[in-house]
Design a protein around this nucleic acid. Structure first.
Length: 424
RNA sequence: GUGGGCGUAGCUCAGGUGGUUAGAGCGUCAGGUUGUGGCCCUGAAGGCCGGGGGUUCAAGUCCCCUCGCUCACCCCA
């Protein structure tokens, strides 16, 4: 048994899954890059105050933070999400608005791990700071949708809602509180607890006991002021106009307290209901001001890699790519020829691998086969003396070709490119 | 934090009611072919049976504790 393994909720992403992770971010970067978003890489560690703004009543802040005091007596925390970091960065650097950023990277929450939920988990996301325009909401929601489409996912459901202005929201929360209070006896004990902390969150309960109570709960739309209702209507119409399908979910409330106005969530249709949120976001017009910046509106979303990848698995799309070598160099001598040949091939842009430890020719050929390389280049005693090399096609039975060492790279480049041309 | 299931070779897993040196398949390595991969055959390496304690003449097997994984709840991505 090994002395060490990963800490709970942490894991190694190994090949070929690691390649898939990289490609996932590549696809995301391409999608949002077309819309002009810039990459921001915030630190993993921030002053804990940056994150307590997420809401004193949220689990993310109260019990899931990885926080500690560093050697300089600073109370810091590993980020549980990146929106607050992006806003802090905005306040610190004050870029011109509208500020459009994208990010990708790990976040940390001290939770009990389970399927699709880890203590270190990666998210990709975008944020737009500095505009109240509902067309920002539309673009953000659409970009998330476009990304899922780009991955090949079909079974994604987009739910949207509006929490109205802070004032609307406060009046609604009060009404909700009164209502749930009046039905307290019908609620599950867990939801009774939730009610004490945050009435909105009771709407999230998936317990069957709570379902009838929630079904009759007051709805947010009757608390929207005309301004909020208008904003939301433009958002809905915009999504219609660009053909992004959505369902209105007046009970959609998200976990973080900073949301107001438009909120939305992407759900995987094939995942189990408990962990079906692939991503979500909304407006957080007060967050920048909360962090000490000028009153600056914001919209954004975050998408979880793990869950989205699970959804991809369920739909058999976005499979892990295979990373094969082009050429495997077999050197029957001391290995010095493989050194020079690999150097030359790699300089020519060819993915070239080799063996070490002076293994037998048979062993090296086996390794060549396993590497997935298309060609093996063989250099034995007679080739070394003659200044040649043998090129053997590992996927056909055609006779191997003897070429002068000087022509080796050029020959392989043309053979490989003609193969690539034929396959595409 | 609460509850269920599970921890045996690198991986996937066998190992009725406790009984000598713990097995298989795959993978790895070597050989069969002293310069040729895949298929086949032969062999080898590789295990504190998650850890600790207990019961027993005897524990991979039974009991307790602990750690980890996993599923669900909670919450969230």
């Amino acid at each position: 048994m090994p002395d060490f393994s990963t800490s709970p909720g942490m894991r190694d992403i190994t090949a070929p899954e690691s390649f898939r992770w990289r490609r996932f971010v590549d696809v995301f970067e391409h999608t949002v890059g077309l819309a002009g978003y810039d990459l921001v890489i915030p630190p993993l560690l921030e002053d804990i105050g940056v994150f307590t703004r997420l809401g004193e009543a949220t689990d993310v802040v109260t019990k899931e933070m990885y926080d500690f005091v560093d050697k300089g007596e600073r109370h810091v925390a590993l980020r549980p999400e990146q929106t607050a970091s992006i806003c802090r960065s905005f306040v610190e650097h004050r870029p011109t608005t509208p500020f459009k950023a994208w990010y990708a990277g790990p976040n940390f929450r001290y939770e009990k791990p389970q399927r699709g939920r880890y203590r270190q988990f990666d998210q990709v996301g975008i944020e737009v700071l500095g505009s109240l325009d509902p067309y920002v909401d539309i673009e953000v929601i659409q970009l998330g949708w476009t990304f899922f489409v780009a991955l090949g996912l079909r079974n994604v459901e987009l739910a949207i809602n509006s929490l109205g202005t802070p004032d609307d929201r406060a009046r609604y929360v009060a009404a909700l509180h009164d209502y749930f209070e009046s039905r307290n006896a019908d609620l599950s004990p867990e939801s009774q607890q939730t009610l004490l902390r945050n009435p909105l969150r009771v709407l999230d309960s998936k317990r069957s006991q709570d379902a009838p109570v929630i079904a009759e709960a007051p709805l947010i739309n009757s608390y929207w002021c005309s301004e909020a209702a208008e904003h939301f209507e433009v958002v809905c119409e915009g999504l219609n106009a660009v053909g992004v399908p959505y369902t209105l979910d007046l009970k959609l409330v998200r976990g973080l307290d900073y949301y107001r106005g438009t909120t939305f969530e992407y759900r995987g249709g094939t995942l189990d209901s408990a962990q079906n949120a692939l991503g979500g976001g909304g407006r957080y017009d007060g967050l920048v001001a909360d962090l000490g910046g000028p009153d600056t509106p914001g919209v954004g979303f975050a998408i979880g890699l793990d869950r989205t990848l699970l959804a991809c698995d369920d739909e058999n799309v976005f499979a892990a790519p295979s990373e094969n070598a082009d050429v495997f160099v077999v050197d029957i001598g001391d290995g010095s020829d493989a050194l020079t040949v690999c150097t030359e091939l790699r300089a020519g842009g060819i993915r070239a691998e080799r063996s070490w430890d002076q293994r037998s020719m048979k062993a090296q050929m086996k390794a060549a086969n396993r590497s997935g390389a298309r060609f093996a280049v063989l250099i034995g005693e007679s080739e070394r003396e003659a200044g040649t090399a043998l090129i053997r096609d590992l996927r056909s039975d055609e006779e191997q070709l003897s070429v002068a060492r000087a022509d080796l790279t050029g020959t392989l480049i043309s053979r490989l490119s003609s193969l690539q041309g034929a396959s595409s």
